[in-house]
Simulated scan of single mutants.
Amino acid sequence: MGTTQLEKAPEPKYWHLRTVLTDALDSEFAVGEVLPNERELAARFGVARATLRQALEQLELEGRLQRRRGVGTTVAPPRVGVDVGPVRDSWPGPPGGDWQTEGCEDVTPPAAVVQLLATAPDAVVHAVRRTRMSQGQPVATELLYIPAASAPSVPEAPADTDSSSVRAEHLLRALHRLELEGQDRAVELGSAHTDDARQLDRLPGAPVLVVTTRYFVAGRTAAVSVSTYRADTCRLTFGDTEPVTLMAG
């Protein structure tokens, strides 16, 4: 049988520009500095604005750039290490620490969560919303979906926000009273939805890392959390024994 050699694929223009821009970011710009507008950058590098946008989007995905409302495109600081699994087989932590409880509501979860919970498509579950902070800035938002069977003693949903936060704390404590058998976790790249983007001070569609965790009790899924992390500032770590302190670099 004869052999063939694949032709070397030419490097896309945007990828070459991304390399050139990376060198410029390292040598000409400081962290937090605003880049020139697209017209100026396209003229400087002699490329179409569509090519420039592709390169900028790639650098944003890699965490080198940030798009900020009312500011423009800035040079991003180093990513922070965020531990998403400090202790094996543990429930989501109680209120306090890095996570801030924002409240809760009763919702019909998305189809993907319905499948993980193995509930009826129109079943209503509790949804606790939390925000993770690092150095005073939001780095993640979370929705923790809890079927009524996992928290049967929690009161009905209140109308006011303060009571909603108290009820969210009751739901978290209800989970801690269950005997957790195990959990599994998946991470995928996604795009920020409007609500998450607002919480994280990002633009809708910005790249995010979505961490989905299932918690098992008595052979069933007792809860599912969907955590959305900023892909431009976060580097996820997976510790099994001791918590990893958030740190720069």
Rank of each mutant, 00 (worst) to 15 (best):
W15E: 14
S150N: 09
S164V: 01
S163A: 14
E38T: 13
D122W: 02
R69D: 10
D162H: 12
L178S: 03
V210N: 04
P121S: 11
G182V: 03
D23Q: 05
L203Y: 13
E11W: 05
A42E: 08
T233R: 10
L171G: 05
D106Q: 15
L236K: 01
A248W: 05
D83C: 09
G93V: 13
P152S: 05
T237R: 08
E102R: 13
L17T: 01
A112D: 15
G96V: 11
T221E: 02
V211Y: 01
H170C: 10
T119E: 15
R235C: 01
R202K: 02
G219F: 00
R230I: 01
A111D: 13
P94F: 15
V113C: 08
D232E: 14
Q100H: 09
A76K: 04
Q54T: 12
T233P: 01
H170R: 09
P109L: 12
G70D: 08
L172R: 00
P86A: 04
G97H: 07
A48Y: 08
L209E: 13
E179W: 05
Q183L: 15
R88C: 09
Q66F: 14
T22G: 09
V226E: 10
V208H: 08
V113P: 02
A48R: 04
T22N: 06
F238A: 12
L21M: 10
L209P: 00
Y14L: 05
S153H: 11
L178M: 10
P243N: 11
V154N: 08
T194W: 06
G249Q: 14
Q100T: 07
V139N: 03
A118I: 04
V113I: 15
D122R: 00
